[in-house]
């Protein structure tokens, strides 16, 4: 067992442990913090794979953006410090069944499809390549999805502005 495998298992255990804590804790703020650690663990996994760009983006988007947003909305809700009540038995049962089925599905997929390890063609993933690939119109270019996403974000932004815009009060 090489060092990288050991590190992989440590990180994986960290992700799973914090993930389980996130769904089992009964304090909503702690759940957000455990989710945050889980996401950081995933970023660590990307770092281990030497996919630095995606790891940094994972931290920026999920940790710096989404979790902070979640935490802010928790702050603005009432009873954020109180323990939530225990879910009823039926709900617990159903979620357990859903978890088992989901796990079985993933297990089935992994056991049926083998992952071929090809160490021959490692893609050079420096940022300049990612940038040119993102904006290239040629083969494997991502210009169309890129533009689609930007239009989507623009629409969302305009929507936000329209919602937040104050209408001038009519003069009495």
């Amino acid at each position: 067992m090489s060092a990288s495998v050991i590190i992989f298992y440590i990180i994986a255990a960290f992700i799973l442990g914090t993930g389980i804590l996130a769904v089992t804790t009964r304090k909503i703020f702690r759940a957000a913090i455990w989710l945050l650690f889980s996401l950081i663990g995933i970023a660590g996994l990307y770092f281990l794979l030497e996919m630095n760009f995606i790891a940094a983006v994972q931290i920026v988007v999920y940790v710096g953006g989404i979790v902070v947003l979640i935490i802010f909305s928790i702050f603005l809700t009432q009873k954020s410090g109180k323990e939530m009540q225990k879910p009823i038995l039926v709900r617990q049962l159903f979620s357990a069944v859903a978890t088992v089925i989901g796990f079985a599905l993933v297990w089935l997929l992994i056991s049926h499809n083998s992952f071929a390890t090809n160490s021959t063609s490692i893609v050079d993933v420096n940022v300049a390549n990612i940038g040119t690939q993102l904006l290239s119109t040629g083969e494997h270019g991502f210009i169309l999805p890129f533009e689609l996403v930007s239009i989507l974000l623009l629409a969302a932004m305009i929507g936000c502005i329209v919602i937040a815009m104050k209408t001038k009060q009519e003069q009495l």
Binding site: N52, F53, A56, I59, V63, G65, V67, V68, N126
Partner: peptide, 18 residues
Amino acid sequence: DINIGVLYVTAVSSLSVI
């Protein structure tokens, strides 16, 4: 000497708010 140095710094510094 990480190849995304500046991005790494911006990303990690956004953690301090947590």
